[in-house]
Simulated scan of single mutants.
Amino acid sequence: MKRILTVISVVALLLTSCEGPQGPPGRDGFNGFDGFDGADGGLIVSSAFEIEVNFNAANNYEIFEPYGFEVFPSDVTLVYILWDTIDGQDIWRLTPQNVFFNTGILTYNFDFTQSDVRLFLDGTIDFATLDPSYTQNQIFRIVVVPADNVDGLKNLDISDIESVMTYRKVESFKKK
């Protein structure tokens, strides 16, 4: 019995002291503190800009605006409209945004591609009958969220521009 225990102990000692070839290096882990992958040490930053738009019949109540920076096919674009200003504080709303009239509905809407964003009026109302306050000098903020961080948006209230700006570390908007 002693002999069996000695053999098992020697075999166990030999197996635990052996070392095989080193495998390939692994990827850096996800940092739960700040939510960024530490793979290359780089910081992924959202690009954003602000634009003032005049909708009219001449432009078919739509504006195409190129980004002016690289946007990847998997990136996501969010568009906010300056809805009101109260006590000097800007109130932003995520589009699409509806305005209801007795004669129909006006919708501020958008779509986007890899090269530009299109801002347009939609709805059932005759746009030509709208007061200029609904069509002229409309201010929009466009935020492009890199696809690497789309999963992080699951628990984020994207309707609140301040929370998106804070999450994506957007400190200022370039006016076009």
Rank of each mutant, 00 (worst) to 15 (best):
Val117Leu: 01
Tyr167Arg: 10
Val76Thr: 11
Pro21Glu: 10
Asn60Val: 07
Lys175His: 09
Asn102Arg: 14
Gly42Ser: 15
Arg3Ala: 09
Ser115Asp: 08
Gly26Cys: 03
Phe120Trp: 02
Gln138Ala: 00
Leu130Pro: 06
Val164Ala: 04
Phe110Gly: 04
Phe140Cys: 05
Glu50Thr: 11
Phe64Thr: 02
Gly104Met: 14
Gly68Met: 02
Val10Met: 04
Ser115Glu: 07
Asp87Gly: 03
Leu78Gln: 14
Leu94Thr: 06
Val7Met: 09
Ala128Arg: 10
Gly38His: 08
Arg168Met: 14
Val45Met: 14
Pro146Ser: 03
Ile81Thr: 09
Gln97Arg: 12
Ile139Val: 15
Asp126Met: 13
Thr113Val: 04
Ile86Val: 15
Thr6His: 06
Ile86Arg: 10
Pro132Lys: 06
Thr113Glu: 04
Pro96Tyr: 02
Ile161Cys: 09
Phe72Pro: 03
Ile51Gln: 03
Val150Met: 08
Asp37Met: 12
Glu70Pro: 08
Lys174Phe: 02
Gly29Arg: 15
Ala128His: 09
Thr124Trp: 01
Glu50Tyr: 02
Ala39Asn: 11
Glu70Asn: 12
Gln114Tyr: 05
Asp111Cys: 08
Pro24Val: 12
Val7Thr: 06
Ser47Ile: 00
Asp151Ser: 11
Ile44Trp: 08
Ile158Leu: 05
Val79Pro: 00
Thr16Trp: 15
Pro25Tyr: 13
Val76Tyr: 08
Phe33Gly: 07
Arg93Leu: 14
Thr95Ala: 00
Val99Ser: 05
Phe100Glu: 00
Leu121His: 05
Asp37Glu: 14
Asp84Gly: 10
Ile8Gln: 06
Asp34Ala: 09
Phe72Trp: 07
Gly123Thr: 11
Pro25Phe: 15
